[in-house]
């Protein structure tokens, strides 16, 4: 009798198990991890994007913010999740391509299946309104005399690397004061203690800062009068991007499904409107292109950090 019961149990298990294997993905809630705090620079596009995915995939998307240590705590956690398509992450360039070089993270570029790029933001060289500097040349002139103080997030962050690149290209030196984030930097700028900061366009708008140059290959729509670094003599390009990732080993049919959903999501009018309201730029890159781009970025940023002497 017991044997029969066991057999029946096994049979039932097989039926149920078989059914799961063939069921349409997604059949349960999907967790999207954002490695920075709610309401922040990564969180806003991440949440707007998740709202669209929820509608397209017709399932619940649970957004969790796992914060700390430049996003590496969240990324490490995600890299250890089961690659079943139910644990995904919305992560920026720093967490995925610079932090692994700076810290000994348990994850690397091999730990992810890149799904798509969702958003991007070029960096601007900005100064406070009453700084007395009106052009990029003013800044370089002042730096030549010595005494330009610049601020940004902790060393190894994108703005830190970018200011090092600008200084190197124009053969000047900036004094870098690390702050916790852009809010603290702007306070120092408005108080006149920090003269220049490299940041995204939204900060220039929000805090009424004057952008002097854009570190991109072309001028932007939001600040059409601001020259590119190349126009100013040295081509320097630094921008942040935000991508949608799955842990490595996620089945390819699930990645395909997510890739299609991503393409649809970024085109939704509500997403476009939401991003515009938050002054963020949508930049979509499909899976194949993004995978290649990501691998390149991982390598290049490692090289940049070594060249800047930030890592050995």
């Amino acid at each position: 009798m017991r044997r029969i019961l066991t057999l029946a149990g096994v049979a039932a298990g097989l039926v149920v198990g078989g059914a799961t294997a063939y069921a349409e993905y997604p059949e349960k809630n999907i967790h999207v991890m954002i490695p920075f705090s709610a309401g922040g620079g990564t969180d806003v596009p991440g949440r707007l994007f998740s709202i669209e995915l929820e509608k397209i995939l017709d399932t619940n998307i649970i957004v969790t913010n796992v914060t700390g240590a430049g996003g590496t705590i969240g990324a490490t956690k995600l890299s250890k999740e089961k690659p079943d398509g139910y644990h995904l992450g919305f992560m920026p360039v720093g967490t995925t391509t610079t932090q692994p070089h700076i810290r000994k993270t348990a994850y690397s570029d091999k730990s992810w299946e890149p799904i798509c790029m969702v958003a991007q933001g070029p960096l601007y060289v900005t100064v406070a309104k009453d700084s007395g500097m009106n052009t990029f040349q003013d800044l370089i002139d002042r730096a030549k005399e010595g005494g330009v103080v610049t601020g940004g997030p902790p060393p190894g962050s994108l703005p830190h690397i970018a200011q090092a690149a600008v200084a190197l290209a124009h053969d000047v030196e900036f004094t870098y004061i690390p702050h916790e984030g852009i809010n603290e930097v702007v306070k120092s700028m408005l108080g006149g203690r920090v003269h220049m900061a490299i940041w995204f366009g939204d900060a220039a708008q929000r805090f009424d800062l004057v952008p002097l140059a854009i570190l991109d290959s072309k001028r932007s729509e939001e600040f059409p009068d601001v020259p590119t670094a190349a126009e100013l003599g040295k081509p320097i390009e630094h921008y942040v991007w935000f991508g949608f990732f799955a842990p490595a080993g996620t089945p390819s049919d699930i990645i395909e499904k997510l890739s299609a959903a991503c393409e649809e999501a970024v085109q939704q009018p509500s997403f476009v409107e939401g991003m515009a309201k938050a002054k963020r730029l949508i930049r979509y890159m499909p899976t194949d292109e993004f995978r290649e781009f990501f691998t390149d970025q991982y390598k290049n940023n490692g090289k940049l950090l070594r060249d800047a002497g930030l890592i050995k």
């Binding site: 309401g39 969180d43 806003v44 707007l48 809010n183 702007v186 939204d202 929000r206 805090f207 939401g274």
Partner: peptide, 25 residues
């Protein structure tokens, strides 16, 4: 100024931005 004064106001800032309200001067 658009600069959050603490953790709570930082979250609120994010929501305001989503609603197209940019705190500041």
């Amino acid at each position: 100024l658009g600069i959050p004064g603490d953790g709570g106001t930082a979250v609120m800032m994010g929501v305001l931005l989503i609603h197209g309200v940019t705190p500041g001067v």
